[in-house]
């Protein structure tokens, strides 16, 4: 808290009281919008998740939608895929971002500005654009296949996006490309708050680059690492744009995520809003649980 209310004079106590009430009018529009467009829908999603039926023809169904989830092979596959993306992509991305940031946080480094701009550049694209660019790069007649064929590493085009494991990996590669520079910026900002002399002193004491990284950089950036982990987890659990535009969940649901499945259930088939809401609620629960775990772990260290 850097701003402090001036001590009101005895006479103006009533005035300050009045002014603070005016303050509610300033925050009212935003608070009302967030209540109506965020908290209320969460309640309605829960109520919907207890109903069944197609379109707007809904009737009470108890917790049956939730038990149905455990028997739904597509849902289980979607959860498995989502966690596959999460467990592989988030640590690699944050690791590379941290490494890049600590490399760029070097006073003697040349072309620092150019490196930073180029690595940060992918943030300017929409997720749909980068999905399409990467879909071209890895399509059967795309750049990567043509290169590999020309070099003689493969004898026929490899179906990167229509083979289950490679399709998942390409989606991860696309996310890495889009988001690594974004996270790097957070770390760079955090590093700027660490006194450079700490590193100079460590060097004089004979600490290696690796030791400086693990003993100084990582511990001091812990709060920011925690924040980026929570944000990335939240984002990956909702993964939609890339999957829809690169594989549309295929082959055979191998890349489907919870979000693309919700979209299919609600807007591509006869809408099953009740069941889709139960699915949506599970994302919310996962986000909440993972954030809690991450904060607990972050606190302990």
């Amino acid at each position: 808290m850097t701003t402090t209310q001036p001590k009101p004079l005895r006479k103006s106590k009533g005035l300050m009281h009045h002014i603070n009430r005016v303050g509610w009018l300033f925050i009212l529009p935003a608070v009302a919008l967030i209540l109506v467009l965020c908290f209320y829908p969460m309640i309605e999603a829960f109520i919907l998740s207890l109903q069944k039926g197609k379109g707007n023809n809904l009737s009470w169904n108890g917790l049956n939608n939730y038990t149905r989830l455990f028997k739904d092979k597509v849902y289980l596959q979607a959860v498995q895929n989502t966690f596959f993306y999460l467990i592989i992509q988030v640590p690699i991305m944050l690791g590379i971002a941290l490494l890049l940031a600590s490399m760029l946080n070097d006073k003697t480094l040349r072309f620092k500005g150019i490196f930073r701009t180029l690595i940060f550049l992918p943030c300017a694209t929409s997720l749909v654009s980068c999905s399409i660019i990467f879909k071209q790069l890895f399509s059967p007649s795309g750049l990567v296949n043509t290169l590999l064929l020309t070099w003689g590493w493969i004898s026929e085009p490899y179906p990167f996006l229509t083979e289950a494991t490679s399709a998942r990996i390409i989606i991860i590669v696309t996310m890495l490309w889009r988001w690594t520079g974004y996270n790097m910026i957070f770390y760079l900002a955090g590093l700027q708050n660490i006194d450079y002399q700490v590193y100079e002193a460590a060097r004089i004491d004979g600490a290696s680059a690796v030791q400086q990284f693990t003993k100084i950089t990582v511990p001091l950036l812990k709060p920011i690492i925690l924040m980026t982990t929570v944000l990335s987890t939240n984002g990956t659990l909702q993964l939609f744009d890339e999957v829809r535009n690169m594989t549309n969940g295929g082959p055979n649901n191998a890349t489907t995520t919870i979000s693309t499945y919700i979209y299919k259930l609600s807007f591509e088939q006869v809408p099953q809003f009740g069941y889709a809401s139960a699915l949506a609620y599970t994302i919310f629960i996962m986000v909440a649980i993972l954030a809690l775990i991450q904060m607990k772990v972050g606190d302990k260290q």
Binding site: M42, L48, L237, S266, A280, I283, F284, A288
Partner: peptide, 12 residues
């Protein structure tokens, strides 16, 4: 509200 995923409130 930052913790509420957009995907969860999409349908309502």
């Amino acid at each position: 509200s930052m913790m509420v995923p957009a995907a969860a409130t999409l349908i309502p």
